[in-house]
Design a binder for these strands. Structure first.
Lengths: 203, 203
DNA sequence: CGTTCAGTTGACTAAGGTCAATTCCCGTGG
DNA sequence: CCACGGGAATTGACCTTAGTCAACTGAACG
């Protein structure tokens, strides 16, 4: 039941059964219906999730408009990282784009494991480090490529992936996500994305 | 001599003298002349730095053009993070924009401290986590604000800073960095930045 | 079968990119 | 001290591309 989570953690550090079992008692399954929120803006969170089934999006509000900046697929960790780490109200919302099934556990528990156990602590550090690397990559992409180039790269699936746990299969973005969210993700409007797609397909 | 580094680390975790002294023997001072490279593209690095004096920039090459995506000021940690973590050749270069004085030490040593000492390990994890938070913020800025809005935010110094160690004083960007690099940082051309400045100053 | 909403398309606007000329600044050498 | 050279920044003219608004299309769903 929980083995996909273990597999993914073990993509980063090897766990003994003993270590794994430190976490297991705190795991729960949580189901979300399509359009249900996993994280709401303004609330403070202590909950980590791991996607077993489904897709979620992560958005900010700017002048009342939802701006989708990220997605979570199967085998991704999903959380209001900012809120968990700083204990401040979340500035972003996370919404299920389809019916989802998550493994959830409290961030506190993870912090406890960090204190108690070296392997778990190493997992926490490495996870954060890999997230840094993947964010650096995306940020550089936003700075040095045009919207059209970014779209090209997205459909070519050219981005590097440091660990499966971070980004599952990116090609799924194209297949499973409504275009207006992809447009946000690329930093453009849905209308522009439609035109870019048109341009690109004619080449 | 090394106390600014200790102060900044202690912005994240408290160190006993004993813990601090685990690192000290491995510290060295390194001076860079203006325009000298701290990191070259294609070489693999194991060196961390901490800026005592001066400013550096961090750039990628795209079709032969240098694209500056980040800066390092006094009291910032500077490193080819990607190269240190993955042991792969660096894709970016880091250049001194002025004569610089750095404290340097091997990343290996830090890894050794992580293994040996819980406080150091916690430092490593928290550092990576704060970097994640600050990168998330910058990335969202690139996605949801226009170039002009980004420039406004830059001069207003509106960005949050999770720890001094990450980003020193951002207002210094405006004062100390040639505009063409700031343009890259904002994801626009120097010509556009000049026009934006003109527009903004007339409001 | 109609309602709804995402996606496309068209017309127009606004903003950034490009290229080139000019000005400004600063340092260097006569 | 002044004149010159070189690079950075500004400005102008023009182009390209994204944004906006609105109309239309088409598929999904009840």
């Amino acid at each position: 039941m929980y083995s996909p989570l273990r597999n993914n953690i073990e993509g980063i550090v090897k766990l003994t059964d003993l270590e794994w079992n430190l976490l297991v008692p705190h795991l729960k399954i949580r189901k979300l219906k399509k359009n249900e929120l996993f994280v709401e803006i303004g609330k403070t969170y202590n909950e980590m999730g791991f996607v077993l089934k489904g897709v979620l999006r992560h958005y900010y509000l700017k002048e009342g408009e939802e701006k989708t900046t990220s997605f979570y697929f199967e085998n991704n960790i999903v959380a209001a990282y900012f809120s968990c780490i700083t204990n401040q109200p979340s500035k972003l919302a996370i919404e299920a784009l389809s019916n989802c099934e998550l493994i959830v556990f409290p961030y506190n528990v993870l912090l406890g494991l960090y204190k108690k156990n070296k392997t778990w602590h190493e997992f926490g550090r490495l996870l954060a480090e890999y997230i840094v690397l993947s964010m650096e990559e995306r940020m550089v992409g936003l700075l040095i490529y045009s919207p059209e180039e970014r779209y090209q790269k997205l459909i070519e699936g050219n981005e590097e992936r440091y660990r499966k746990i971070l980004k599952g299969n990116k090609t799924k973005i194209i297949e499973n996500i409504p275009q207006r969210y992809i447009a946000d993700y690329l930093g453009i409007t849905p209308v522009s994305l439609s035109r870019i797609r048109n341009r690109v397909s004619k080449k």
